[in-house]
Every structure is written in C-alpha cells, then in structure tokens.
C-alpha cells in the first residue's frame, strides 16, 4: 500500500494531478446546481413582484 502511495517517488506529482482533476471536476459539477438555485430564486422573486403589481389591493 505504501508503495502504491509513493508511486516510485513521484507520489506528490501523481496524486497532486489526480487531486486537481477531482477537485476541478467536482466544482464543475456542483456549480450548475448553485446557479440553478440562484436562477430559480430570482425567477420566483420576479413572479411574486409581478403578481403584487397585478393585484395591489388584495
């Protein structure tokens, strides 16, 4: 196991690369989720404002 982690002395480079790969792809996959939530919240706000404008006395 230690041998595997050491990667023949290149462990830092190999695991560093894989870490970058996973971190960037994880961010890349989570980003749309956050954007989606933001867009939908904005949309809901806009819809609410429009409804209030349509029936101000209610």
């Amino acid at each position: 196991m230690n041998d595997f982690l050491a990667m023949g002395g290149y462990g830092a480079y190999v695991w560093g690369s894989y870490a970058v790969f996973f971190v960037v792809l994880a961010i890349e996959a989570l980003a749309p989720r956050a954007t989606r939530r933001r867009v939908l919240t904005e949309l809901r706000g806009r819809l609410r404002r429009r409804e209030q404008r349509n029936e101000p006395s209610a």
Binding site: M7, G8, G9, Y13, V14, S17
Partner: peptide, 11 residues
Amino acid sequence: QGDAYRIIFIH
C-alpha cells in the same frame, strides 16, 4: 518515466 507517467491517464 517510472510511475510519473500515470498522470497521462488524466492529462
């Protein structure tokens, strides 16, 4: 290249 070449599997 030893084990360092394993980076190319993602690179």
